[in-house]
């Protein structure tokens, strides 16, 4: 059974299972995943993630979804008929 103190503070062996700053941490996760965080924010989050399971899991999920968006969605090529049509119209201007 995990005590309330351990939930918040964690122990050297065990990460805390409840994050008391989850809202702020998840905003930070978004900045980090999007490459918009400062070095200071990255360092702050890395230090926190080492001690906090919800933050670690939250980061993994956001990163995984972003990767899925980048890599697993079908990328269409513009139809050649559209390409030809645009070029024809532009050359006529």
């Amino acid at each position: 059974m995990i005590s309330e103190a351990e939930k918040v503070q964690g122990t050297p062996q065990q990460k805390k299972t409840h994050c008391e700053h989850e809202g702020e941490c998840m905003k930070l996760v978004q900045l980090i995943v999007d490459g918009q965080a400062t070095e200071e924010q990255i360092a702050q989050f890395k230090s926190n993630m080492d001690k906090c399971l919800p933050c670690e899991k939250g980061y993994e999920l956001e990163k995984c979804i972003k990767d899925a968006m980048q890599l697993r969605l079908e990328k269409k090529c513009v139809p050649s008929s559209l390409l030809d049509c645009i070029k024809k119209k532009i050359s006529g201007l």
Partner: peptide, 10 residues
């Protein structure tokens, strides 16, 4: 869970 997202197809 991240693992669940990884199992979904495009």
């Amino acid at each position: 869970r991240a693992e669940t997202v990884q199992d979904l197809i495009g």
